[in-house]
């Protein structure tokens, strides 16, 4: 009986994001049936795509037991650079999108340089670049609002076969990350590195290269997120993306990635992002006091991180080195 209960809690812990999402949908659905309408659900997915793409990148970083706090700043700076290129060089939006992605990758490479080559811990490096990247952007704009051309908004509100472009991009990135993680050597080596860095080195993996690539991808994903989000409103002000890194990290953790590395999936990141958005939107639907909403959201995120800690502790207990055989077997 006790064992069965333990199995059940293991099952819940291992699929905590699905369980959370189901709870949220059911709870808000009962409170406000309109919450479960097709339109509202579509809205949730669309809204979640903005942080979802960045969460996919962050999942890779977390998988190596690293962290990227500069996500919010990259969301701000990379589209800004793209916007300036579009304005001054007159390049079209798709080219601007590319510039944004490349800028994001470059910013990620700066993180990677400090982390891998100079061996500074990721937390410190990305905390510094978080201020650095934003500061640079504020210097570029003199802290004023930056207006994009009308084409940008048209791109943001466009759709493909009836599906809003942000969702299409979200789905594309998710599939790409999924294939990368599950069907390429690089992806499997990320898992290996996150599981046991020392063993990865002993097995002859190029650990530095893997770790660096992860930050570059995270930068590129954050840039895509930022670009798509800005395209919704067509302008950019100095505070854009500030604090977003925490939404993104929370989404990744909710999706099953762990601060301790070695676990996480593309599907999980998608789920985590949708979960956060559903929780946020549900609060609006049910008319919870505007000022209470961050508190409730904070509690949900705390629960998710707590589940991660419990899960990890269970796992390490299971894998603890024993010096004599357990009599059970």
């Amino acid at each position: 009986m006790k064992l069965r209960l333990r199995r059940l809690t293991d099952l819940v812990l291992n699929h905590s994001s699905l369980v959370f999402l189901a709870c949220i949908l059911i709870y808000y659905g009962l409170q406000a049936p309109a919450f479960l309408s097709v339109e509202s659900l579509g809205n949730i997915v669309k809204q979640s795509s903005f942080i979802g793409v960045a969460a996919l990148g962050t999942t890779l970083v977390l998988m190596t037991a690293g962290i990227d706090l500069s996500v919010g700043a990259v969301m701000f700076l990379a589209p800004l650079v793209a916007g300036m290129a579009m304005k001054h060089l007159g390049i079209p939006v798709p080219a601007g999108f590319l510039v944004s992605v490349l800028t994001g990758a470059l910013l990620g490479a700066i993180n990677a340089l400090f982390i891998v080559k100079l061996r500074v811990v990721p937390f410190i490096v990305t905390l510094a670049t978080m201020f650095l990247f934003r500061g640079f952007g504020i210097w570029l704009t003199s802290s004023t609002q930056f207006d994009f051309s009308e084409d940008m908004r048209r791109f943001g509100l466009s759709s493909l076969f009836g599906i809003p472009t942000p969702i299409v991009i979200f789905a594309l990135v998710a599939v790409l990350i999924y294939v990368l993680l599950n069907h390429t050597q690089f992806g499997r080596q990320i898992y290996a590195l996150g599981n046991d860095r020392e063993a990865a080195r002993k097995a002859g993996l190029k650990t530095a290269r893997i770790e660096a690539a992860v930050y570059v991808i995270s930068g590129a994903c954050a840039a895509i997120s930022g670009f798509v989000m800005i395209a919704q409103i067509g302008r950019l002000d100095a505070g854009f993306g500030e604090g977003r890194e925490f939404d993104v990290i929370a989404a990744a953790i909710l999706g099953g990635a762990s601060f301790f590395g070695g676990v996480g999936t593309a599907f999980g990141a998608v789920l985590g992002a949708i979960l956060i958005q559903a929780a946020k939107l549900g609060l609006v639907f049910t008319g919870v006091n505007l000022y209470l909403q961050p508190v409730v959201l904070g509690m949900i995120i705390f629960l998710a991180v707590f589940a991660d800690a419990v899960r990890t502790r269970r796992l390490t207990n299971k894998l603890k080195r024993t010096i004599r055989p357990l009599t059970r077997s």
Binding site: V179, H183, T184, Q185, R188, Q189, Y191, A192, G194, N195, D196, E198, A199, A200, K202, A203, G204, L205, G262, V263, L319, R321
Partner: peptide
Amino acid sequence: QELNLFTNLSVAENLYIDGFPRRMGLIDW
């Protein structure tokens, strides 16, 4: 004595982690 295996990967992946056979860039499972 202290094993150098990746517990989050499969047996096959542990064997091939430093060089997977690939088809068109993807792992040939």
